[in-house]
């Protein structure tokens, strides 16, 4: 059996108020994959991500993390980080202390964690802003702090919920390229939600197109991981083709959601 990072066995989520957020989903995520979730609003993308982060418990079915249960998460080689849709920084702490938070919570001494904070800040290009407070940063900078905070634990699985949704196109493209670089280097598996199919096409090795009523995976689309993800790729015909395919799938998915809602 191949090792999975996450294995979801017909997990479903029905909320206490009776809303079925997710129909049973079965999905395996393998090391070094970069998976994006796209789909109409309300199709359960965030719910799926929260199930994987153990912020929600499945009402039926089960999940495993590195073929174990959640108690294993956080140990060496089994680290998980979550980047929320909002930066969710502590407004009372400097950028440096915000980034250090997950290490502080683990009880790692500042002497050990400081160099790692520095390193994470360097990755997102914010070393110069380490002593600033969140109120003194632009939206894009806050988001990068949030990403640095996720990277500082050296995660093996990174979950991101529309991380760049609020950013302008150029900043977003830059961060996408940074992410692609980062994933290439480390033993990092990426699972992210996006509203932009261009972003999904650029960054992913696998795109999951989801549909609503109830939330489910509508289609899967594979992209060759060997293609280097750079500016040339963004301008290539392959990229345009992928975007077209994804666009069609997305339209079908939202159609299917509507039909299901009416039925």
């Amino acid at each position: 059996m191949q090792e999975t990072v996450i294995s979801i066995q017909s997990a479903e989520k029905t909320f206490p108020n009776g809303v079925q957020g997710l129909a049973p989903i079965t999905l395996d995520i393998f090391p070094k994959e970069r998976i994006s979730l796209i789909g109409p609003s309300g199709c359960g993308k965030s719910t799926l991500l929260k199930l994987i982060a153990n912020l929600h418990q499945p009402s039926e079915g089960s999940l495993s993390w590195w073929n174990k249960d959640f108690s294993e998460v956080g140990k060496e080689n089994h680290r998980l980080s979550f980047v929320f849709q909002e930066p969710t920084l502590m407004p009372w702490s400097t950028v440096r202390k915000n980034v250090r938070l997950p290490l502080d919570l683990e009880g790692i001494a500042p002497a050990v964690s400081e160099p790692r904070v520095q390193e994470a800040l360097k990755v997102v290009g914010l070393e110069h802003a380490a002593e600033r407070f969140p109120a003194q940063l632009s939206g894009g900078m806050k988001m990068r702090v949030s990403i640095a905070r996720a990277l500082v634990t050296r995660p093996n699985l990174l979950l991101m919920d529309e991380p760049f949704g609020a950013l302008d196109e150029l900043t977003r493209n830059r961060l996408d390229e940074d992410m692609a670089n980062l994933c290439g280097k480390d033993d990092l598996t990426l699972l992210f939600v996006t509203h932009s199919l261009y972003e999904a096409a650029f960054l992913s090795t696998r795109v999951m197109v989801m549909a609503a009523h109830p939330g489910r995976i509508f289609a899967e689309y594979e992209i060759d991981p060997a293609i280097p993800r750079d500016e040339a790729f963004r301008l290539s015909d392959t990229f345009a083709m992928i975007c077209q395919d994804l666009s069609k799938l997305l339209i079908e998915a939202s159609h299917s959601s509507l039909v299901a809602k009416v039925a």
Partner: peptide, 14 residues
């Protein structure tokens, strides 16, 4: 408390 930060603390088993 910001629910996002609360979730973050929970996720890191604080």
């Amino acid at each position: 408390v910001d629910p996002g930060l609360a979730a973050f603390f929970k996720m890191h088993k604080a």
